[in-house]
């Protein structure tokens, strides 16, 4: 928690000739909720994959002074970079407590792994409070609601004491109230941490983003505050095909997102 920033410079990712990300640069600092948006195939998730070591990328991604690219996945995690996935991936057969306990075990000695758990770590209780899962301690993660699973994933990042949280579509499939709760949660945890969110949901982005980077076909199209980005004619062109008013419905390119937003405006 030294206030180190995540700085990505000239990131390239290629899949056998196809350039998925071609020279993307952005940075994210503690205290802001940073959004990475763009149409399908813009390379948002690929950026996160490269930063976390899941796919190979060239260029640079630094956390403070430390270069992340080229390191093994679990070593990058140990440096304090945590992520979630588009589909919630919690351990279905384990309880909420067991899930969190595994996440907290990162900094434990191997000998203590051989003992049974006694009681609940303070860091786990704190994360449970923070994410509103305190009542679900003994629930198997597999029967949690979709939103709760996403919160559990965020809670797991909190107990693993991640300095950087890379969240891949955290509110996909959530109800309006759940989205609001998630947004508030993100703003709370972003006070001391770097939070980078990949999203399709423009409404959610508008409400909670501090700064936004728009990707298009593997390149940075626009960068700035929500208002700046929305006013950018290049962004409007990509999202609308023509230069028009960037309405909530029109800015979302994904059909579900459009449907969602339309539903919301009807309500």
């Amino acid at each position: 928690m030294t206030g180190a920033s995540l700085v990505v410079t000239d990131l390239h990712v290629e899949f056998s000739g196809f350039v998925a990300v071609g020279g993307v640069s952005f940075d994210a600092h503690p205290g802001e909720v940073r959004f990475l948006i763009g149409p399908n195939g813009a390379g948002k998730t690929t950026c996160i994959d490269a930063i976390t070591g899941l796919t190979r990328g060239t260029g640079s991604a630094r956390l403070g002074e430390t270069e992340l690219l080229g390191k093994q996945v679990h070593k990058i995690v140990r440096l304090g970079v945590g992520r979630t996935f588009q589909t919630a991936s919690v351990f279905d057969e384990l309880t909420v407590l067991q899930n969190l306990d595994i996440a907290a075990g990162l900094h434990r000695s191997s000998v203590s792994l051989l003992r049974a758990r006694r009681g609940v770590d303070p860091s786990i209780e704190q994360a449970l409070e923070e994410t509103g899962l305190a009542g679900e301690l003994a629930t198997p993660a597999g029967i949690l609601s979709h939103g709760q699973k996403q919160w559990l994933e965020i809670a797991m990042l909190l107990v693993q004491d991640a300095k950087v949280l890379l969240l891949d579509e955290p509110v996909a499939g959530m109800s309006h109230d759940e989205r609001t709760a998630t947004g508030d949660l993100l703003q709370r945890i972003a006070v001391k941490r770097i939070v980078l969110v990949v999203e399709h949901d423009m409404d959610f982005m508008r409400r909670f983003a501090t700064r936004v980077t728009v990707l298009h076909q593997g390149k940075v199209l626009s960068q700035g505050t929500v208002a700046e980005v929305q006013a950018d004619p290049k962004v409007q062109e990509v999202y609308l095909g023509t230069a028009g008013a960037a309405t909530a419905a029109a800015m979302a390119v994904v059909p579900e997102a459009v449907a969602e937003t339309l539903k919301l405006t009807e309500d």
Partner: peptide, 27 residues
């Protein structure tokens, strides 16, 4: 003892979602 220990939980977690365990910082 293995099954009731944290290692046992970690082992089941690895069985069910190896990649996820990697992203929790374990090899």
């Amino acid at each position: 003892q293995f099954y009731r220990s944290r290692f046992g939980e970690l082992l089941v977690a690895t069985r069910d979602a190896e990649e996820r365990v990697r992203f929790l910082g374990y090899d």
